[in-house]
Nucleic acid binder design. Structure first.
Length: 459
DNA sequence: CGCCATGATTACCC
DNA sequence: GGGTAATCATGGCG
């Protein structure tokens, strides 16, 4: 500013139609002052200040008239060029093009979060992806639907407030920007303002407003987080699954003990049957695998129980198959062998095979019956593929006989189930992991001696 | 109220 | 991304 004052001093004496530009005042006062002496200058400044202070008292028309008078003044172009020169010399205009302000990471984070939470972004009927995701992870569809709808309603509320406020801010920002731009454009007729400067001013205004916007976004994020945490807290209040659901899951687990990793489809199927979500099924299997592996002994009884259940179910299916085989086409062993049990539907040949081997051999971590070797060989053919070389051309009648044998044995076995260690948990390998499906193992239960593997069922 | 069962979450691994 | 292991936190029972 020193320099500017100096320049102004140097320019002192340049008079425009008797109006002094001394003292740094660019605008010539409307009525004249003589004298450039000290006292007169003071008086001059005081006068100008007074004018400025009382400018608001003037009527708009009066001001407009004055402005017009100034613009039409014959010396105005000269004054304008002088002002331009001063400005150039003082370097006031060279502060324009500076930062191309890079996107604020904080703002980006907030934006991303709001988008993810479904607050920002395209309208989606209030539901939002986040709510849907939360719903998916929140378990029983009917159980917490109330909480869920509550969550959605609150989220919608937040969303609405956010959008209203955002709109308000934008509107205010636009209004203010146009106002300032108009003002500056207007002023650019009397003082040197380049379009670049106007642009810069607009940028400044936008930055100011975006900082306000950021606050809005931040508080919206906070609100969503609070809502979400409350919702998640509520979700954390776990409910035990229904007995039926647990049963279904256990049945699947123990009948696939050799490879208790349900496929995505199987998970969906189980989820549907149990009225739980797929992720809950995954959770359940994750927990089950871990806990089973950790303490196989503890699960022995349960395993027996479910294996027996499965066996009975399967036996029914086998009986049906036998019936089918006898009545339909005895020459084609595989035709008609379909498990149609609605209660425990096995939808692939692989699973049937696993089930059967689980039932009748100890090799996949399920039952262990006397003469199982025989039956194992016989059973393999039923599904056409075998673990140990199928007897492709096996005698159909012998298979039917074997099946009858199996059924009677299974039934009897089931009756005599008395908590004996009938079941040996194979499928678990020495490394503590499960073996691949369909590869019967000879690994012996870590919790039991070899004897238990072939323990007689007294049946 | 303490204990165990159990569903969910988290960190880490492959 | 799905799995394991550890852990948390609640439900439920004696």
């Amino acid at each position: 500013m020193d320099e500017q004052a100096r320049i102004m001093q140097a320019l002192g004496g340049v008079s425009l139609a008797g109006h002094s530009v001394q003292g740094g005042m660019a605008l010539p006062p409307p009525h004249g002052h003589e004298g450039a002496d000290g006292d007169g200058r003071k008086q001059d400044i005081g006068d100008i200040l007074h004018q400025i202070m009382t400018i608001t008292d003037q009527s708009l028309d009066e001001a407009q008239a004055k402005k017009h008078g100034l613009n039409c003044h014959r010396m105005k172009p000269a004054l304008f060029s002088v002002l331009c020169e001063i400005k150039e010399k003082t370097g006031l205009s060279i502060r324009g093009a500076q930062e191309e302000d890079p996107p604020d990471p904080q703002l980006m984070r907030l934006d991303n979060m709001l988008l993810a939470e479904g607050v920002a972004g395209p309208e989606k009927g209030g539901g939002s992806a986040a709510a849907a995701a939360a719903a998916a992870a929140s378990g029983g569809a009917s159980d917490n639907s109330i909480e869920h709808s509550d969550y959605r309603a609150k989220l919608t509320q937040i969303r609405q407030i956010y959008h209203t406020e955002l709109e308000k801010y934008e509107q205010a920002c636009n209004e203010f920007t146009t106002h300032v731009m108009n003002l500056l454009r207007e002023q650019s007729r009397t003082r040197p303002i380049s379009p670049k400067e106007i642009e810069r001013m607009v940028g400044i205004i936008h930055r100011k407003f975006s900082s306000i916007q950021m606050q809005l976004k931040q508080s919206t994020c906070e609100a969503v987080m609070i809502l979400r945490s409350r919702f998640l807290d509520a979700r954390r209040k776990r409910r035990n699954f229904s007995k039926q659901a647990t049963e279904i899951l256990n049945e699947y687990f123990y009948s696939h003990l050799s490879n208790p990793y349900p496929s995505e489809e199987a998970k969906e199927e189980l989820a549907k049957k149990c009225s739980i979500t797929v992720s809950q099924v995954s959770n359940w299997f994750g927990n089950k695998r871990i806990r089973y592996k950790k303490n196989i002994g503890k699960f022995q009884e349960e395993a027996n129980l479910y294996a027996a259940k499965t066996a009975v179910t399967a036996a029914h299916a086998v009986a049906a198959a036998v019936q089918n085989n006898q009545t339909n086409s005895p020459t084609t062993p595989n035709s008609g062998f379909q498990m149609k049990d609605e209660e425990f539907q096995l939808d692939s040949a692989e699973s049937k095979n696993t089930l059967l081997t689980n039932m009748f051999t100890g090799s996949s971590g399920s039952f262990n019956l006397p003469n199982s070797g025989d039956m194992f060989m016989s059973m393999q053919n039923l599904n056409g593929d075998s673990y140990q070389g199928a007897q492709v051309g096996a005698n159909v009648q012998s298979q039917v006989d074997t099946l009858r044998h199996v059924i009677s044995q299974t039934a009897g076995y089931n009756d005599s189930l008395g908590g004996n260690s009938l079941y040996s948990p194979h499928g678990l390998n020495a490394n503590g992991g499960w073996q691949d499906a369909g590869t019967p193992s000879s690994v012996i239960s870590p919790t039991e001696g070899p004897g238990s593997v072939h323990s007689d069922t007294s049946n």
